[in-house]
């Protein structure tokens, strides 16, 4: 592990992180190692978020740095694949709601944590959730919503999954703007997650890894 790279990235020093990555590549470093270091840095970022040292802008900045590193490193990795995924998570913003910022952060963090994520996007009809869950067979489903109108969309989505006989094979987590544990009970989900790190922790708890 390159301590310096991990530290620079965890401290969100974009300019010096990218400069160091380029330098390491030029010197012939293994691109896989660089990606591993970036993942370690993301672990630290996640922990700092959990302890209240980092906030959403920091997650976004970390995401930007990770994306830039991937852009540099990925072309050198052809054929090596992305490693084994820990499990499958399906995420979407429920019908009627077009908010995506929170959902995108959750998708990103769950992906970085090593899960295979299928993001259905925004304003996802109930039927689409049912159909895609049947196809993709996730262990965890994340329902996102920012508005109070999402309460009923979530409820209908969960009910439709029950009717389709899919409810017992999945764990459902909800999150976003107006959500809380009251809403979790109302929509009959398994858990409410306050933020992206809570979502990652729920996946770990339910799937392992």
């Amino acid at each position: 592990m390159n301590e310096k790279l991990v530290q620079l990235m965890a401290d969100l020093d974009e300019e010096n992180t990218i400069a160091l990555v380029k330098e390491l590549i030029e010197k012939g470093a293994n691109p896989m190692d660089i990606l591993d270091d970036a993942r370690s840095a993301m672990e630290i970022v996640g922990k700092r978020f959990e302890t209240g040292e980092y906030f959403i802008p920091d997650l976004m900045m970390a995401g930007e740095i990770l994306r830039s590193i991937s852009d540099i490193v990925k072309p050198l990795l052809e054929g090596e694949g992305g490693g084994v995924k820990k499990g499958k998570v399906l995420i979407g913003t429920v019908a009627g709601d077009i908010h995506d910022i929170g959902k995108d952060i959750v998708t990103f963090m769950v992906d970085v944590a090593g899960y295979e994520v299928l993001d259905l996007g925004i304003d996802v009809p109930v039927e689409t959730f049912v159909e895609k869950i049947r196809e993709f067979k996730p262990q965890v489903v994340g329902l996102s919503g920012f508005l109070t109108l999402a309460f009923d969309s979530m409820k209908q989505t969960v009910e439709a999954l029950e009717k389709a006989g899919l409810r017992d094979s999945i764990k459902i987590m909800i999150g976003g703007g107006q959500m809380d544990d009251e809403v979790r009970k109302y929509v009959k989900a398994d858990a409410y997650g306050k933020d992206a790190i809570a979502a990652v922790n729920l996946c770990r708890q339910w799937i392992g890894g």
Binding site: T148, Q178, D180, E182
Partner: peptide, 9 residues
């Protein structure tokens, strides 16, 4: 008074 309480309580 929370929206969730007014909608579901």
């Amino acid at each position: 008074v929370p929206g969730s309480l007014l909608s579901t309580g």
